[in-house]
Design a binder for these strands. Structure first.
Lengths: 251, 251
DNA sequence: TCAAGCATAAATGTATACAAAACGAGCTGC
DNA sequence: GCAGCTCGTTTTGTATACATTTATGCTTGA
């Protein structure tokens, strides 16, 4: 017996952004991640309303959503503020990401990758190989490598077949790119090493070695964290102003 | 130079639920976690509006928030639905929780616990000891032990001094209690063992042994997952209907 | 009989008006 | 000079009216 009060299988149309609320959310998210707002800056509803040519209602819904995603802070009766992330926050985001992506790799190994996911990963590995053949890396290449890297990680996340992991990871993944300070090592040696990591992780998943897949993936992401810490400690300008913990030094 | 457009340090009043939107969110969250809605059931705005005596506006804000927390699903133009969690989802929630609480314990060990947190933990350990002296466990005692357990874990989370971990953990922690199927082993032997785990975890944190604290905490939470799986496989009624993965068997 | 399409009802999405709270400037009194 | 108050402005919170979309049942036609 099918109950009409049950959730439909999927969205009615394939087209995204069905409502103004959704498109506003997407636009605002993009603007924040692109750094168009200063950290800690207050967001005024009416200003956005005029700028985006919609009423305050969808604006408010977008702000609520983004606050739930951790991009904004909300203080009742005092509005929304662009959330600030300290260096320590970014480091922590990598720690969390490492743990969660480790879980994703483990699950992917347990379940086994679908053909489509294997193809995506193999293409990413191949593209990475081609990328490493190059003589020089430009700043545009950073973006390119980022996409290759992202394809690899996304495919494994898809392989975990876990909406919960996907949702949780989105929270921690969104942090890092949102910070302009997130300039990880981009030496050829570092990229080469990370690319090698990808091979090993893929192999472990193919062998259905769940424990090894998790270990390798976690260490792989942690290595980016380490590189970030290294690059920061070489630049004492970015000392954590929050007067914080001895985390950065002790690790 | 202090910019007036910066976020205030904290909320204006200590009193919670400053707005109707906030109190509605809290009320709805409580109702959902208490199981007052069937999984997959559709939530109608107007019905809630009449029941809670507020207009649709704060209702809609509450629904958006709860969707962000993972308690509801939203389909554009088709409303909100109470999110359903399969057995596999619950097991996964424990896996994620184990990984994240492991991170929290690690950080707490690195930073070192504050006096207040040590006192809370020691009280929880003491209360647990008294609890285990009892002859019999009633169903009301489940709640009591749950509170003792919660005090212990919350104190360590507080000791991690990490808002990110707190936020991420809330997502995975809210899942498990929301399911009425979440009946973990409550034999004296199990409780005794978990209580011992707590001692060891606390000792590791006091010794500032971050790696050990993480390992112990992760295994501690994973053990609840294992107990859950065990209890399920003894009751084949609860076979995962989603036709899923070999996760439950393979682990 | 059944499928397609239209009409109607009901629910969500959006705009707007109004209420309440917070902020800031200026005044007052000491 | 300065603390504290008042009052007006600004901004957020809430209610409500309207628009749009979706669901449903009926009719129609083959």
């Amino acid at each position: 017996m099918v109950n009409s009060r049950m959730k439909p299988d999927s969205a009615p149309k394939s087209s995204e952004l069905a409502t103004r609320s959704a498109s506003t959310t997407a636009a605002l998210r993009g603007a924040i991640l692109a750094g168009e707002f200063a950290p800690g800056e207050r967001i005024y509803e009416q200003g956005l309303s005029e700028r985006l040519k919609v009423s305050r209602t969808p604006i408010r819904e977008a702000l609520k959503s983004l606050a739930g995603e951790g991009l904004l802070d909300h203080v009742p009766n005092r509005g929304y503020y662009v959330r600030e992330y300290s260096v320590d926050d970014i480091v922590q985001a990598y720690e969390i990401r490492a743990a969660l992506e480790g879980l994703a790799a483990r699950r992917a190994a347990q379940i086994g990758l679908a053909a489509e996911q294997r193809a995506t990963i193999e293409k990413a590995l191949h593209d990475g190989e081609a990328f490493l053949e190059r003589i020089e890396f430009s700043s545009a290449d950073r973006v390119l490598y980022g996409e290759i890297n992202s394809a690899f990680h996304s495919a494994i996340l898809a392989g975990s077949q876990s909406r919960m992991l996907r949702d949780q990871l989105r929270l921690s993944q969104q942090i890092a790119p949102s910070s302009h300070r997130n300039i990880v090592a981009f030496e050829r040696r570092d990229v080469r090493r990370r690319h090698d990591d990808h091979y090993r992780i893929y192999e472990a998943i193919l062998c259905r070695d769940a424990a090894r897949a998790e270990l390798l993936m976690r260490d792989h992401v942690e290595s980016v964290k380490i590189a970030l810490i290294r690059s920061i400690s070489h630049r004492p300008v970015f000392r954590d102003e929050a007067g914080g913990h001895p985390i950065l030094e002790s690790e």
